[in-house]
Amino acid sequence: MTEQSEMIPTGDNRMLDEVHSDRKITWLEKALGTENYRIVKGLLKTPASVVGFILILIFVLIAIFAPVIMPPVDKDPYKMPRDGYSGEPKAPGAVWTRKVPDVPFWYEPLTGKTEMTHVLGTTQGQYDILYGIVWGTRTAFKTGLLVVAVTVTVGVVLGSIAAYYGGWVDNIIMRITDIFMTLPYIMMALIFSAVLTPILGRSLWPPLIAMISFGWMGYARVIRSDILSIKERDFVLAAKVSGVKKNRILFKHVLPNAIFPTLVLASLGIGDVVLGFAALSFLGIGTDVGYADWGQILSFARNWITNLDRYWYIVVFPGLTLTLFVMGWNLVGDAMRDILDPRMRGKS
């Protein structure tokens, strides 16, 4: 036997007492995955995001219970009821005479009156503002969720293809993304909406399609860069060495670990989409006059610029609603971003 080296590892094969955690894993953690569980816990701890959640919850409730809160008058509940056709807006508290809805359950206890009034006033053309706000919540959710869902899907698909196949495929997809990103969002949404309206008619669809067409790029970029970095991680290489097929690696290893920043963007995105849609409505693109949509109501204010101090309620009520809605999503999204940022991790 030749000379042994100076450092002789112990021949003892017993496993030393290594530390491992006895932490209980709840069913929720198993269901969500550890990363996501940590995020949810973090969100529930941050006061800002709790406020955000509450706001969102309030809006969800309003949307769900819209028919009960402000019973519809017309066959199409999204048509705001008009109390006459006069051009002069009525102040909050004015009596509601024509096309009066059934008195909702909360009305009498809250206001002490038995006859229906315009609680928040009317716009020119006598559209009831409260009605518009309540049913506009449904519009906001409909449009926001739809646009975000589609843009995220499109963006993720394109970004994943670009990242995973690389080469010229990547190049082409990224150039296209660059070109789309050069164009100003609102202007392009406006323009495309205007182009589509003669073809599709005046409805929600032109602005929705327009917003989708120009809203996917951010997601494509983010998912692509995340996939590129995850692709090189050891556990992905290990899966390859273990003989896992390429497609399965993408779906089981790469995407689940890469998707989270994208989801953060998406949650913030709902707020932005609703803002954008309201802006388009405000400019007169998209929904018909009288459709229950916050931007639509606000567009009436354009006619009364010189007298806005008198007709303040046309601006303040829908504006406040819109702001609170967006703020709810932004609070949650911001908190999520803080939690996901690895540099902030030490702080919680």
């Binding site: 800002a48 405000f282 504006g319 967006v326 703020m327 932004n330």
Partner: peptide
């Protein structure tokens, strides 16, 4: 910064 980014431009303008 939270409120500012939530406030729509046109509402702010109208205000």
């Amino acid at each position: 910064s939270i409120i500012g980014t939530s406030f729509p431009t046109f509402v702010f303008g109208l205000l």
